[in-house]
C-alpha cells in the first residue's frame, strides 16, 4: 500500500516556543487517519504544514510524493481540504458555489453535492453566510465529496456542530470513503465521535507524539486498571506504567502491558493494592490514558 502522506523529522517553532521536534508519521492509501491531541499540541500547525500554508522549521512533508508547500495543480485537485470552521465562500449561495467549483475538478460529482443539499432546509438563493454552522458544514462536505479527491484533509470538522450534524458528517464521510477507497486525514477535539471511524491515529501531547498506532492495536494492547490503595502512592511513569491518576485511595493505571505484568510491577514497586480491576477503554479513555487529563 502506497504512502499518501509522509512526514519526516518535522520540527516547528513559533519564535522560541517549540511546537514539536522530529515528528514522523505516514498515512497509507485507503486508511482513515486521526491526528488527536489536546488544544495547543500542534494539530492545526501540522494541518497547516500538510496543506502547504506553513513552512516548517525543518523536516519534510510530502503528499503523493510532492512537497506539501509546492503541490502541482494536478495534485491539489486530488486533495480535498476542509478548513477549520467549515470556511467557504460565504458570499455565494449553494447553486453559485457548486457552479464555481465544478469547473476546477475533472471528476466533479454534482449528484452527491445536491443529494446532501436536498437534506438542508434552505432556499437555494440563501447565501452561506446566512446559514447555520451545521448547514454550512454540510455545504463544505458536499463540495469536498463532489470534488472526488483521493485524499481528504479535514481540520476539526466537529467545530461548532451539534451531535446530529456531527453524526451526519461522519456517516456520510465513512460511507463515501469506504465505498470509494479514499484516504482521510482528520483532526477533531471530540474524540469520542471518532471511535469506530478511525483506522489509525497519531496521539500528540505537549512534548510531541505520544504514539502512532492502529486503533485496533490500541484497543487490543492498551489497558486501564483500577485498584484501591491505602496510602498516597508516589508512582512514576516508566516502561510499564504509561500514565496514572489517583483520586483519594482510588488509583487508575494505564499500560500497554497485561494485567499480570502490571500487578507484578506494582508489587515490585511495593505498592499495596486491592480490588484490582481491568477497565474497558474506548478511544477517548485511551486518549486520556495516554495524555492525561491536564
Amino acid at each position: 500500500m502506497e504512502n499518501v502522506v509522509e512526514i519526516k523529522n518535522l520540527t516547528h517553532y513559533y519564535g522560541e516556543k517549540k511546537v514539536y521536534e522530529n515528528l514522523n508519521f505516514s498515512l497509507k492509501e485507503g486508511r482513515i487517519f486521526g491526528l488527536l491531541g489536546k488544544n495547543g499540541t500542534g494539530k492545526t500547525t501540522t494541518i497547516n504544514i500538510l496543506t502547504g500554508f506553513l513552512k516548517p522549521k525543518s523536516g519534510s512533508c510530502t503528499i503523493f510524493g510532492e512537497e506539501s508547500y509546492r503541490l502541482s495543480p494536478e495534485t491539489k485537485a486530488r486533495v480535498g481540504f476542509l478548513i477549520e470552521g467549515h470556511v467557504q465562500y460565504s458570499f455565494m449561495n449553494i447553486i453559485q458555489i457548486e457552479k464555481f467549483y465544478s469547473r476546477f475538478y475533472p471528476k466533479w460529482k454534482k449528484d452527491i453535492y445536491f443529494e446532501l443539499m436536498s437534506k438542508l432546509k434552505v432556499n437555494q438563493n440563501q447565501k452561506l453566510s446566512k446559514m447555520s454552522c451545521g448547514q454550512r458544514s454540510q455545504v463544505a462536505l458536499g463540495l469536498i465529496l463532489a470534488q472526488d479527491p483521493d485524499l481528504l484533509i479535514l481540520d476539526d470538522y466537529s467545530m461548532g456542530l451539534d451531535a446530529g450534524y456531527r453524526r451526519l458528517f461522519l456517516d456520510y464521510l465513512k460511507e463515501y470513503s469506504k465505498a470509494e477507497g479514499k484516504t482521510i486525514f482528520v483532526t477533531s477535539h471530540i474524540i469520542q465521535d471518532l471511535d469506530g471511524f478511525l483506522d489509525d491515529a497519531v496521539i500528540m501531547d505537549y512534548n510531541g507524539v505520544v504514539t502512532q498506532v492502529s486503533i485496533q492495536d490500541l484497543k487490543q494492547s492498551f489497558s486501564g486498571f483500577t485498584f484501591k490503595t491505602t496510602e498516597k502512592v508516589e508512582l512514576v511513569k516508566d516502561d510499564i506504567i504509561v500514565n496514572f491518576e489517583q483520586i483519594r485511595n482510588k488509583m487508575t493505571v494505564y499500560s500497554f502491558k497485561g494485567e499480570e505484568e502490571v500487578k507484578a510491577h506494582l508489587t515490585k514497586l511495593k505498592v499495596e493494592f486491592s480490588d484490582f480491576v481491568k477497565i474497558h477503554l474506548d478511544l477517548e479513555d485511551s486518549f486520556i490514558g495516554l495524555t492525561g487529563k491536564y
Binding site: T51, P73, A77, I83, Y89, F104
Partner: peptide, 13 residues
Amino acid sequence: NLRLKLSLHLPIE
C-alpha cells in the same frame, strides 16, 4: 477567516 486558503488550494498555479 483566512478564506484565501481556499483560493490558493484551487488546482491552479
